[in-house]
């Protein structure tokens, strides 16, 4: 029986300890933001943060995760307010969106260590595959997230989830309370 912490909550999975973390997150915890793309550690769509490292969740078993701290895209920020998320929105990065959680997680780990990375550091940290072709906007967005983290820029590009109709009506003149 393996125990560890997922998104600040202690969990214990009643699954085969050989099960890759990805499937415990997706199929047992319903944390479906972490995606399956290849199962071989190549695409990075399943990237999560384990003890501050960007890890392909399809490549670590539950047994190997014992006692560690896992953070998934769902808990990166409560309101899409992480600088990487805001920078991705501001630069209009995402297309189909399938690779995005993994990209965001990998970029957030990179920037926590170095909030002013150069192109080569970014390329080395982001080995994730995207088939839509978000690459042309990716380095710029990550650098912009770095500027936000360094306090040089403020961006509010993506609204938080859970805005009520009443709140919307207060902000948008075209709307009224239902």
């Amino acid at each position: 029986m393996t125990r560890f912490t997922v998104n600040d909550r202690p969990v214990q999975y009643r699954m085969d300890p050989d099960t890759p973390l990805l499937w415990a997150l997706r199929d047992a915890s319903n944390l479906t933001g972490t995606k399956y793309g290849c199962g071989t550690g190549d695409c990075g769509a399943c990237t999560v943060d384990i003890d501050g490292e960007a890890v392909r969740a399809c490549q670590v078993s539950l047994a190997q995760t014992e006692g560690r701290f896992v953070t998934t895209i769902e808990a990166l920020s409560p309101d899409r307010g992480h600088p990487v998320q805001q920078a991705f929105a501001a630069e209009n990065v995402s297309q189909c969106g399938y690779c995005i959680p993994g990209m965001v997680m990998a970029a957030s780990v990179l920037l926590r260590r170095n909030n002013d990375p150069g192109d080569e550091e970014i390329d080395a940290a982001i080995t994730n595959i995207c088939r839509c072709g978000i690459y042309p906007r990716l380095r710029g967005a990550i650098k912009r997230a770095g500027r936000i983290m360094r306090g040089e820029e403020q961006v509010a590009a993506a609204p938080p989830p859970g805005i009520t109709p009443e709140e919307a009506a207060r902000t948008v003149p075209a709307l009224r309370k239902p």
Binding site: G33, E74, Q85, F88, A89
Partner: peptide
């Protein structure tokens, strides 16, 4: 204009077919 599908694609809440529960 900002894409309407952007916000949910940034926080993992955008449901694809394999995310249905």
């Amino acid at each position: 204009l900002p894409r309407l599908d952007t916000p949910s694609k940034l926080d993992g809440s955008h449901n694809f077919a394999a995310d249905i529960r």
